[in-house]
Design a protein around this nucleic acid. Structure first.
Lengths: 98, 98
DNA sequence: GTCAGCTGCAACTCTTCACTTGCATTTCGG
DNA sequence: CCGAAATGCAAGTGAAGAGTTGCAGCTGAC
């Protein structure tokens, strides 16, 4: 998940798909300074992470963002952050008891 | 940022520091199946990302989580997710107008 | 039917990254 | 003062990842 978001090119692809809707790998490659194959491999990573989905439409494959996975991941991240804060607060309490 | 969170060992170090408070690199290395130097390098990455902070205490360096950076990053991530949802909603509206 | 456009598979290069080992340096305790 | 324990620096290895090129297979349009 974090691995999928760690690459700048993949984040660019995600924002592009989120902004302008679905697009084919070839169309995406024309807007980035990389080859079509590089885009295809990045899309495969994003797909494996559940962030996008590929749907065949005739002779091209349109890739689109899965908003469910995005929002679910965002809420999960905030939850983790809250847990971290709770732990830190508990540690501070223990420190004050001493 | 995402790069820092992408590695499992670094996430393990973070949760460890968040759970049990500050610790030295040597102490952390004893709880993980990696060498001390590996831990040191991971801590350097986490420090560069602003997630932890190293403070010298005598002959050892105690590393602790910076909760501010954690919560700030979490809120930033939710904000990005919301923006993505807004964009998707706008696209759907345009699609329905057609 | 044929041709152009898009996708899929495979192999290869090159850099980055995770991790290790070895040694020098500093510091606390008896 | 001396040894144990912790950090810091450096160099090196092995694997994973980002990117490329080349070619073959479908599919839609004219």
């Amino acid at each position: 998940m974090f691995v999928a978001l760690a690459d700048p090119t993949r984040r660019a692809l995600l924002t592009r798909l989120a902004t302008h809707g679905s697009a084919s790998a070839t169309a995406l490659a024309k807007e980035l300074p990389v080859s079509r194959q590089a885009v295809v491999q990045h899309l495969a990573v994003l797909d494996a992470a559940g962030l996008i989905r590929g749907r065949r439409a005739g002779r091209e494959v349109r890739h689109e963002v899965r908003s469910e996975a995005l929002t679910a991941t965002a809420s999960w991240m905030t939850r983790v952050a809250e847990q971290w804060d709770e732990r830190l607060a508990a540690i501070r309490e223990l420190a004050e008891e001493r």
